[in-house]
């Protein structure tokens, strides 16, 4: 067996909440472990309540924030040892992010096509304007856009869904082997949602990319994922083959999650306010 593509071992991240309670620390991510194999390309889904640490975990995998304890290895290399700028750049080419809220991910003062051009210059051999533009256009076409549509535009001139498709396109430019997608479809409609998750399937099946797919959307998770991990309050409460877990969840939180999915077949029936007790003490009391 070759080395795993990604090995997450007992990872913890504590934050001090200066604003809420002085010197109060809590674990945003608590003892999380999982492995993605090199030779089995898969879509690994992470589902969990708001504030359960999914984004924090994603940021650690992307080596954007240091962990408090534990280790993450990418193809055997401990992320903590990746320090030289050249190594960091190479790592970033292999592991690409797609962030949660496109409105926050793009600098409002920067034209969106610049992001694509910068990425193409950094991670590919494209140098001339023509080459760079054709890389950008190629990537945009994979997500149903074209350079003509986004050229010269600022983020506020694109809709949420368009912006998110630009983000997916940008992540494809460096031909990564792992994509960490933090709620990539939260902002887009059902039709684009299906085309993005189908795109993930294609990336996995044809381009050998593994994808960490963080989402709230259990229906698409069921539809595309191989394995799933359910998080609550920074901890993993259940994990396993996606369809088994979603069809027959065991942990009480997984069951609550499953039962909270709004059915499109419901006929305007009044929603029962139904919070998990844990949701009540989300803010700082753990």
């Amino acid at each position: 067996m070759s080395e795993p593509l990604l090995e997450v071992r007992n990872v913890c991240k504590a934050f001090g909440m200066g604003g809420l309670l002085a010197r109060y620390r809590f674990a945003a991510v608590n003892d999380v472990s999982f492995t993605i194999e090199q030779d089995r390309h898969e879509i690994f889904t992470i589902i969990g309540e708001s504030g359960s640490g999914k984004t924090t975990l994603a940021r650690m995998i992307l080596n954007l924030v240091p962990m408090t304890s534990g280790s993450i290895r990418f193809r055997g290399t401990d992320l903590a040892t990746i320090r030289r700028p050249a190594d960091r750049l190479a790592f970033m080419g292999h592991v690409q992010p797609i962030f949660q809220n496109p409105f926050e991910a793009f600098n409002p003062l920067k034209r969106v096509d610049r992001y694509l051009f910068t990425t193409a210059r950094r991670f590919t051999d494209a140098r001339s304007t023509g080459e760079v533009e054709s890389r950008a256009d190629l990537a945009l076409r994979k997500v149903g856009l074209s350079l003509a549509e986004v050229k010269q535009r600022f983020p506020h001139e694109l809709s949420g869904g368009q912006l998110q498709r630009v983000a997916v396109a940008r992540s494809l430019i460096s031909e990564p082997s792992l994509i960490v997608a933090d709620e990539p479809v939260s902002m887009v409609d059902a039709s684009i949602r299906m085309s993005i998750v189908n795109l993930f399937k294609t990336l996995r099946d044809d381009l050998n990319v593994s994808i960490i797919y963080i989402t709230h959307d259990l229906a698409t998770a069921y539809y595309i994922s191989d394995r799933i991990m359910i998080m609550k309050k920074g901890e993993v409460v259940e994990s396993g083959p996606a369809r088994t877990v979603l069809a027959d969840p065991q942990h009480p939180y997984s069951i609550l999650l499953r039962n909270s999915v709004l059915s499109p077949d419901a006929k305007g029936e009044l929603l029962e306010p139904q919070f998990s007790t844990t949701e009540r003490d989300l803010a700082g009391t753990r």
Binding site: G48, Q274, S276
Partner: peptide, 9 residues
């Protein structure tokens, strides 16, 4: 931006 449990609530 909400998870399904919170969204429902």
């Amino acid at each position: 931006a909400l998870d399904v449990v919170v969204q429902k609530g």
